[in-house]
Computed example of a mutant assay.
Amino acid sequence: MQELINFTPIERQDWKTLHQKSHVPLTEDELNAIKSFNDSITIQEVSEVYLPLINLIQIYKHNQDNLNFSKSMFLQERLNSRPFIIGISGSVAVGKSTTSRLIQLLLERTYKKSKVELITTDGFLYPNEYLIANNILNKKGFPESYDMERLLNFLDTVKNNGRATMPVYSHDIYDIVPDQVQTIDAPDFLIVEGINVFQNQQNNRLYMSDYFDFSIYIDADSQIIENWYLERFEKHLDRAREDTTSYYHKFSLWDKADAQQFAKNIWKTINLVNLEHYIEPTRNRAELILHKSDNHQIDKIYLKK
């Protein structure tokens, strides 16, 4: 494990005292609706972990607004509002999607008049056709499988209050969806979720994180994440058994032991390699690290000093 440098560790019992709200602004049904099917986040965790986190984001947002105002005064320019961008990274199967959707919902409840958008960098993966033609389909998720120039241009446009479109990725078909785009138009908050959120374009000194006002890394031991990945794979197979359009349908017809071995090989040769070489080494670029134990619960928080 890469050493955590310049972070203050905070136990969950201490972290939960850093907010005064007693009311959680969402229901159990709303929480269940945004959870990934192999996640187990609870209302208690929302109260103890995510409400203090929203308070912290408010502090960063307030400071950003003050800085933008001061810079406009210094430069004697008209004050232009800019979206507050939050990056969320971590391994495959670690729970990034649930965390991102939860933060989006909590920000919407906190900033009732604000537009809070969420994107995933999966939309900037090259289509399978391109990956196959370049013999890198087995490197999907690795840096070379992303159109990083397009992703950085997208962030630059949004950061400067422009209207930008991006492709849509589907895990069901394991590919970019043809003729479908997601449009982002001048949001107040933008959450950017993906395994490559802290990585940079090859031969380019610009990092995605240069556009972020706040950033989070979801962390856990790699053996634990592997177990979650295998659990998720089995649930994908259960859902795909009657769906012939699903990428996972063909695997659902295999012998269970063969399918499990296939998933283990994918984890070991692709996802674990990607985690150890490209994802985890960027962890220190986050402002906040949420560490999970084997029951999916966050047990420790690390805040950049």
Results as ranks from 00 to 15, higher is better:
residue 6 N to R: 04
residue 8 T to S: 12
residue 10 I to H: 05
residue 10 I to C: 06
residue 10 I to S: 03
residue 14 D to I: 06
residue 18 L to I: 10
residue 26 L to E: 12
residue 28 E to C: 12
residue 32 N to Y: 13
residue 38 N to Y: 15
residue 39 D to L: 09
residue 40 S to D: 08
residue 46 V to E: 07
residue 49 V to K: 12
residue 51 L to K: 09
residue 56 L to Q: 11
residue 56 L to H: 02
residue 60 Y to W: 12
residue 62 H to P: 00
residue 64 Q to P: 09
residue 64 Q to S: 11
residue 72 S to F: 02
residue 77 E to N: 14
residue 83 P to W: 09
residue 87 G to S: 02
residue 88 I to K: 03
residue 91 S to Y: 07
residue 99 T to P: 03
residue 102 L to D: 07
residue 106 L to V: 10
residue 113 K to T: 11
residue 113 K to S: 13
residue 116 V to M: 14
residue 118 L to F: 07
residue 120 T to M: 09
residue 123 G to P: 06
residue 123 G to T: 06
residue 131 L to A: 00
residue 133 A to M: 01
residue 137 L to C: 05
residue 138 N to Q: 13
residue 139 K to W: 07
residue 140 K to N: 01
residue 143 P to T: 07
residue 150 R to Q: 15
residue 154 F to P: 05
residue 158 V to P: 03
residue 160 N to R: 07
residue 173 I to S: 01
residue 175 D to H: 03
residue 175 D to W: 09
residue 177 V to D: 11
residue 179 D to A: 15
residue 182 Q to C: 14
residue 185 D to A: 10
residue 189 F to S: 10
residue 190 L to R: 02
residue 190 L to M: 06
residue 191 I to Q: 03
residue 192 V to N: 06
residue 196 N to L: 05
residue 198 F to R: 06
residue 199 Q to L: 14
residue 199 Q to Y: 08
residue 202 Q to E: 15
residue 202 Q to G: 08
residue 203 N to E: 15
residue 206 L to R: 11
residue 210 D to W: 09
residue 212 F to M: 11
residue 213 D to F: 09
residue 213 D to N: 15
residue 220 A to C: 01
residue 222 S to F: 03
residue 226 E to P: 03
residue 232 R to Q: 04
residue 238 D to T: 15
residue 247 Y to V: 03
residue 251 F to S: 00
residue 253 L to N: 05
residue 256 K to V: 02
residue 258 D to C: 08
residue 265 N to H: 00
residue 272 L to H: 11
residue 285 R to S: 13
residue 291 H to F: 12
